[in-house]
Structures are given as C-alpha cells and as structure tokens.
C-alpha cells in the first residue's frame, strides 16, 4: 500500500518534505484547504513561518478539520513552525508550549549531531533554523531529545514534533519512523 501523506502547503518548505516522502515510497499531497484533508493516512506540518501558517489556517477554516484529524488518531509530524502550530497556544494538538525563535536570530541557527530516542543507528544530523524549543509540557508528553537542557523533540500519542528539520538534513530515518507509524495506523482496523 502507498500511504497518502498530506503536507500543509500554506507556506514553508513543504516541497522538501514531499521529496523525502516520494523517495520513501509514500504519496505526498499538498494541503491548502479543508477538502485536501480527505482520506489522508498521515499529515506533516512543515517548517516555515508559524505566523504565516497561523493566519492561513484561520483564513482557510483549517483549524477544526486539523484538530479532528489529530483526534481521529492520524499520525502527524510537525517540524519547527509545525511544532509551534501544534502547541497549546495554537491548534492545541499536544500539551506543550513552544518558545518561538528560542535559540535566537539567524546567526544563531546551527546544525548538530543529535541522539533521538526511537531512532537507531547513531545520531541524526539536525538542522535548526531560528528554531523553537519546548518551554513547558504536560505529563503525557514524552521528550525524545534535548539541546542544552531544552526539549526539542517530543511525542504525545499520534503526534511527533521536532524543533529541527529532518527534511533538510539528508537523513531519512525520522521520516521512516513517521511512515512506519502511518503504515501501522492505516493497517489497523477502525
């Protein structure tokens, strides 16, 4: 089965995610309006500017349909701006509060090798662009990685969020992990 994975395409690096998905045998679908969410096996909220995405979600009436998709148990991956958009203060899809631009302006953007819980085979090359971190999280949130004591990757149920950009790092393992969840969810009845 070829899973169909939506990528929120209001603004940001949705093309980079689409390229990785195609390489891994999934079918990407750009999501701009609620009708684009029909029949998805998974959803990615990409990097970009969270202010632009938040305004776009309101303009397109996407907030409710996105929350319904999360509640239905569809696997969701949020990277950078996607992490912010999924937090308590935005879509409320997971019990975290993101701090925007937490590492500072662009001159503080960086890449680093990072051990990520659930990803085997050595560290992931993680690219952080004006990245957020997780300031606060509830008890149901599992922190998967930290940088200097700040959580930058987490999971709660079917939602996985990362403050960095696996779609830019050239390492496919995070997307493989996500697609494993997508395939498992699509195969399970109900």
């Amino acid at each position: 089965m070829v899973p169909v994975v939506g990528i929120l395409a209001l603004q940001g690096d949705f093309e980079a995610h689409a390229r990785v998905l195609r390489e891994l045998g999934a079918e990407p679908r750009e999501v701009r309006i609620p009708a684009d969410l029909e029949g998805l096996d998974g959803l990615i909220l990409p990097g970009g500017e969270s202010t632009v995405m938040t305004l776009g979600i309101a303009r397109e009436g996407l907030a409710e349909p996105l929350r319904e998709l999360v509640d239905a148990g569809t696997p969701v991956l949020g990277t950078c701006a996607g992490l912010i958009v999924l937090d308590r203060d935005h879509l409320g899809a997971l019990d975290i509060r993101a701090r925007r631009n937490a590492f500072g302006r662009q001159v503080r953007s960086f890449e680093a090798d990072l051990e990520l819980a659930g990803v085997d085979g050595g560290p992931v090359r993680a690219v952080f662009i004006r990245a957020p971190w997780i300031d606060d999280h509830g008890p149901d949130v599992e922190v998967l990685a930290e940088v200097e004591g700040h959580p930058i990757a987490a999971r709660q149920g079917n939602v996985l969020v990362l403050a960095f950009h696996p779609e830019l790092g050239g390492d496919r393992r995070v997307h493989e992990l996500f697609l494993d969840a997508v395939r498992a969810a699509a195969a399970s009845p109900g």
Partner: peptide, 21 residues
C-alpha cells in the same frame, strides 16, 4: 558540538521562506 553558519543553515532559512511574500 554546534556548527553555525554552514551553507545548509544559510540556505535553510530561504527554504523556510518558500511560498511566502
């Protein structure tokens, strides 16, 4: 070990601006 200002980090911000104004 942080690597700042790599070309990937520099072009990375432009990647994030795609589809935008």
């Amino acid at each position: 070990m942080r690597d700042e200002a790599t070309f990937r980090v520099k072009a990375g911000l432009a990647e994030m601006l795609k589809g935008g104004v």
